Amino acid sequence: MTGIVEKLYNTGDLSDGELKALIGTDDTETAELLRRYADETRQKSYGKKVFLRGLIEISSFCKNDCLYCGIRRSNKDADRYRLSREDILSCCENGYGLGFRTFVMQGGEDSFFTDDFLCGVISEIKEKYPDCAVTLSLGERSYESFRRLREAGADRYLLRHEAASEELYRKLHPVEMSLENRKECLFSLKELGYQVGAGFMVGAPFQNTEHIIADLRFLQELQPQMIGIGPFIPHHNTPFAGENGGTLELTLRLLGILRLMFPKVLLPATTALGTIAPNGRELGLKTGCNVVMPNLSPVKVRKKYDLYDNKICTGEEAAECRGCLQRRIESAGYEIASERGDCIK
Rank of each mutant, 00 (worst) to 15 (best):
L258I: 15
T11A: 10
L83Y: 00
L296H: 04
G17P: 08
G315E: 11
K304V: 02
E140K: 06
A21E: 15
N290E: 09
S297D: 06
A204L: 12
E167V: 09
G341P: 12
P298L: 02
C66L: 05
I257G: 07
R160Y: 00
I125R: 01
L138S: 05
G107R: 00
K126F: 08
Y96A: 07
G230K: 09
L118W: 01
K128C: 07
E86A: 15
S178Q: 04
T275E: 00
L98Q: 07
A154E: 06
Y129C: 06
G107Q: 09
L168S: 06
L98S: 08
L83Q: 01
R253G: 08
I56M: 06
T209S: 08
K171V: 03
K345P: 14
R35W: 03
G280E: 03
L158Y: 09
E180S: 14
I58P: 01
Y46D: 02
G246S: 08
L189I: 08
D155G: 13
P239V: 10
G120E: 14
I329N: 02
A198F: 03
Y68N: 06
C69V: 00
E86Y: 05
G193Y: 00
D65H: 07
L8R: 12
R147Q: 08
E317R: 14
G95Q: 07
Q326L: 03
K303F: 03
G12W: 00
K44H: 12
A21N: 08
E166Y: 09
F187V: 14
